[in-house]
Design a protein around this nucleic acid. Structure first.
Lengths: 373, 373
DNA sequence: TTGAAAGCGTTACCAG
DNA sequence: CTGGTAACGCTTTCAA
């Protein structure tokens, strides 16, 4: 690997001058600049980012910490993040925590050691004090669905409670009175909020919500399936289930089918997130949509704003909206066993708007990231 | 941030001695070591990874370059990669190229500038020469489904051609004689190989494979849907379709349904990859399974082996197997409209083995990554 | 407009 | 066993 010194020697100038050319400084004579650029090309020199980081104090590197990238929800989110970060000239360290506080702690320490310029945190389980200690007061952070904590942080929260209330009300509007909840892990804030939203809707409608209407499980298809097997036992008499997320809802559909109960005729099931698969299972899931790509982009953009600001800004908060998507697992659109053309059109629509370039551009993601140097 | 010098001062020793303690060198007196450790704790000092990298020449950083993390296939793969890398003490830069050669080029250059210790490349479109120039002869690389190129590289290839032959033969064995192919983008090696495999099976069986049996499209649900609308027009008389991947196969199922042709009774459809959704759509997809998590882990482990080897090893190659998963979209297991309990059990099985801890451990992924320092 | 030299936070060689 | 010091590749202050 050629160094800046080699280039200087080759061009017959000083190191300082090469550095000036590298950083596009105006104060260098055109002839000199040309000579340096020639030398750079001749040696196919590229500046060492690590060395540069040492002196500038900036790595142009962002740590992204989330539960599990193989969850389709997060994989979509991360795509948005990465697009936003790449566009601003930042690279991303990806870290999977499996919602394990020890892993969270390790990764956070590691990332700080690596001198990342900022952090994007999704659904951290660490408490606020621990986060504050690990991250410190200066490092720019965007925290989505995390416990509030002190620091240079923008909090971004999905409207989980409100969303859960909305979708539960949808079920109530359909005439259901015995509505259960397949709850997510209650250490997760998100899961707590969705549970609260569900209870709120029932309370507002004067409906009963005994404890045995709710069951907690890990947020996967399989665990949703197992828990639903229990929750749907006839003695509870449930006619509808609000699941913590789409994965669990899909598991619940499987469980219902195994128990010989038709969805939506015998039991209505709704999810949360609107992952791509939600439109593809049968019956197609009624769910609360979170625009995953968009919130990913947003988190990245917000972080970059903060990183570029010289001094810590005021800690800020924003809420990200959800939208009710009515499909067929709730019974609102008929109970036909066969797929109608209208239903099909909906599904096609669901999958077709998927990350079109125009869609991206409207969020500020241009076709190609501007490549530094 | 405290530096090693602060620690040295605080402990009343030299910088050198602190460095020794940091790196667990034996040649330091127990009393001194204790004093240094105390100082480290008191100042909550953590070594600056960037500075360390400058002098050691190793960043303990790996670049992972792939088409799109929001594709469920890759999100699973990356999870495996990250687990393997984290366990070895490496962090991962994630880069999405959208199969755009310009993006590939930019990211590769950027990663080299960042002094990554190694590279994992998935489905690169750049030609061998370009790759060789960008990467150079020394940097350890694991290249999966990429054009062969010179360098310090382990090539890993999915048995795409063989897999496509196998699944096409499965259809032939079911009595189909007019089998179409929903092909992937032919600039991709993977897509070429699967096309070849399909043609091979037809040729071996003495079946016709006119060009209008094949149609190329981008590998998404939506584009699979659009292309299948064309491919399934009655004049072609196709009774079965081999899709490039599961996403396209799912699109094809949607298209068939919209055209009023039942799957599998009127047209059999099979996919490739066995993404999670494949088991969840109706009818459940018959497909060739690639164990995504496993191949992700494997790519990470192979790379680490290479990174730790002092001099460039012999370039090596390995093939990763696929397995035929027979579900219901091909008609081999009956044509019942309703889900039988047996079918359901299969699906449950498909989703339940999903990344269990025991499964992971058998691949060498332990419950928690050993945290350096 | 250009150059010499200091310094970023570590590691590691060579003396003591 | 411990300490002074050069070196890693770059940016930037200060002089010329």
């Amino acid at each position: 690997m050629a160094t800046i010194e080699d280039v200087a020697r080759h061009a017959g100038v000083s190191i300082r001058t090469v550095s000036r050319v590298l950083n596009d400084r105006p104060d260098v004579a055109p002839a000199t600049r040309a000579r340096v650029q020639q030398a750079i090309a001749a040696l196919s020199f590229r500046p060492n980012t690590v060395a540069r980081s040492m002196v500038t104090g900036s790595t142009r590197t962002i740590g992204v910490v989330l539960p599990d990238i193989s969850n389709p929800f997060f994989s979509r989110v991360v795509r948005g993040c990465e697009d936003a970060l790449a566009q601003a000239g930042y690279n991303m360290f990806l870290c999977n925590t499996d919602e394990d506080v020890d892993k969270e702690r390790d990764y956070l320490a590691l990332l700080r050691d690596r001198q990342v310029d900022g952090l994007i945190l999704w659904g951290c389980r660490l408490d606020g004090d621990a986060l504050h200690v690990l991250i410190g007061p200066h490092l720019p952070v965007v925290a989505v669905d995390c416990t509030p904590f002190e620091g240079n942080v923008t909090r971004l929260d999905v409207a989980n409670q409100q969303g859960a209330t909305t979708i539960t009300r949808h079920l109530i509007g359909l005439g259901h009175e015995r509505i259960g909840h397949l709850a997510g892990p209650q250490q997760r804030l998100t899961a707590q909020h969705r549970l609260n939203g569900y209870r709120r809707a029932l309370a507002d409608a004067g409906l009963a919500a005994p404890l045995d209407y709710m069951l907690e499980a890990p947020p996967s298809v399989f665990h949703g399936y197992s828990a639903a097997l229990e929750l749907l036992k006839p003695e509870r008499g449930l006619t509808a289930i609000v699941a913590y997320n789409d994965l669990m809802a899909i598991g619940a559909i499987l469980a219902s089918q195994q128990m010989g109960r038709r969805v939506p005729q015998d039991v209505a099931i709704v999810g949360f997130d609107d992952i791509v698969t939600a439109a593809l299972v049968r019956p197609a899931l009624t769910t609360m949509r979170i625009d995953q790509y968009r919130i990913g982009v947003l988190s990245g953009q917000r972080l970059i704003e903060r990183v570029k600001q010289p001094q810590p800004a005021q800690a800020s908060t924003a809420e990200f909206p959800t939208a009710l998507i009515v499909r067929h697992s709730c019974g609102a659109r008929g109970e036909t066993e066969t797929l109608t053309q209208e239903m099909l059109q909906d599904l096609i629509a669901s999958i077709s708007h998927d990350m079109q370039p125009e869609e991206k551009e409207s969020l500020g993601i241009l076709p190609r990231p501007s490549s530094p140097l």
